[in-house]
Nucleic acid binder design. Structure first.
Lengths: 258, 258
DNA sequence: CGTCCGCTTGAAACCCTTCAAGTTTCGTGG
DNA sequence: CCACGAAACTTGAAGGGTTTCAAGCGGACG
């Protein structure tokens, strides 16, 4: 991975491969929206003075690294990111994926440094809310902090669900829960949950779920053969969510990125 | 990272062979201490007017249930708790353990209801900070909210580590990381990390880690035979943390209860 | 057009689970 | 204080799911 900041390739052209998906999350369905509303209510024109909109990030570029000084939070506008840590003899261990509309880095707010690496899995864009500029506000704005708390709570709940997800026994349970979780998150931010593009490699999925890539591949094939999902390339369609959910024992309650 | 080599033996009392452990966390090593300090600084005599100290909870008793209305946060004073959800066809799924000094329930602060069940694994006691009484304060006290944020951030970091832990492949990796994690948390709150009492059943450990109880038992025996740990009854001593850590690929960074 | 990378597929080895039974520990009541 | 029973833990053997090793396929990209 090159660690250039926002080297920025093509951002505007949505001609990915075949499907004219909606690729950008709308502002009102983004996790950052609560913050923006807040500032508008205070007649602070932050949206243009402080918020950096739609910064391009090329595939493979790093948004921030572990131990980088905290410089603000990010919202995924389009594309997808993964967060990971580097374990000494084990290489990278992926800890989460971040879809359009989801927030990144808020948990570095008090420590002052980010806790993990984040790179773009595909051509992406983000919006940045630089906290350094509004640190002074922080000290006074109760509602600002309430917003922070809200987001953090959502993240705690999500992370706890993730733990349960990954702790599942069989590959079918893990992968099924993973797909349903993705679907739910896409849907929450205004995209189709029934059909979407898998933004990450099977390699990443395997790493994240603690499985081998071969098992991921075979399990997806099993799902396809049972007509639970249809998969063409990176295009995924959930055909039988009910059955998939019962295999998975998945109960929806997730929030926020991870 | 500073690898804090489990600062050796007993922290205060020299008697160790049986059970006379130090059982209660000291206030200044408790996760609630930040809140208390806060109120003292404001000359609010909350410690006696609002804080309920050392409430006893019998083994098996429930501290709160999922969907109970939020009534405040708890700190474990002594003993141990587990949190769990009930999955439809799978029975209970344990999501975390809480040791003395660790906080419970803060993630219910915005939703207004708790998100999981919590029961005592042994005779325990808790301190309660009833938020209903200080809701009005909340709206004004920036430093109070900063404290809340701090705790939530800690929890996010912890939960993310948990996900990595449980996502590990082999039983050795999971169980090793689990033991090191316990040791680290005991130590953080002023107990011995090198030697402690396992507060939970092997059944609970198995459930939590996604293993069978037989595998837990066998893996512990393997650790014992390799002289990585010594186990007598529920008494655990970490004999070779370095080796255990290398087996486990465990890197310490955890916070908070879970 | 060829190479690289991601994905698929097969077969063998391994680890974990399951089933079953035995042993130890602990709590309760006599 | 001891005895009994239940619960927790241990141990063995068989079966199954996952990993690993190995090879082949196919699309992306220069």
């Amino acid at each position: 991975m090159r660690s250039a900041e926002f080297s920025g390739k093509n951002v505007s052209s949505p001609a990915d491969s075949e499907c004219p998906d909606k690729t950008e999350v709308e502002c009102r369905q983004c996790g950052l929206f609560g913050f923006l509303q807040l500032f508008e209510g205070l007649r602070l024109d932050l949206s243009n003075r402080f918020l950096s909109r739609r910064l391009p990030v090329a595939k493979g570029d790093r948004l921030f690294a572990a131990d980088d000084p905290f410089r603000g939070i990010y919202a995924v506008k389009s594309g997808c990111f993964k967060s990971y840590s580097v374990l000494e003899y084990q290489g990278e261990q992926i800890s989460g994926f971040y879809l359009p509309g989801e927030l990144l880095g808020l948990d570095a707010i008090r420590a002052g440094v980010y806790g993990y690496h984040v790179v773009a899995l595909e051509t992406s864009s983000v919006c940045q809310l630089p906290f350094s500029h509004i640190d002074d506000l922080q000290g006074e704005l109760v509602s600002f902090q309430e917003q922070v708390i809200q987001v953090l709570v959502d993240q705690v709940r999500h992370d706890q669900r993730q733990t349960l997800l990954v702790g599942r026994r069989t590959a079918e349970e893990r992968l099924g829960a993973f797909l349903l979780n993705l679907a739910e998150r896409f849907e929450r931010h205004g995209f189709s949950g029934g059909e979407f593009r898998l933004p990450m490699l099977q390699n990443d999925i395997a790493n994240y779920l603690g499985l081998s890539i071969e098992t991921v591949s075979r399990t997806l094939r099993a799902f396809r053969e049972q007509e639970l999902v249809s998969i063409q390339g990176k295009r995924v369609r959930i055909l039988n969510p009910v059955c998939l959910r019962s295999i998975t024992q998945y109960c929806a309650t997730t929030h926020a990125g991870g």
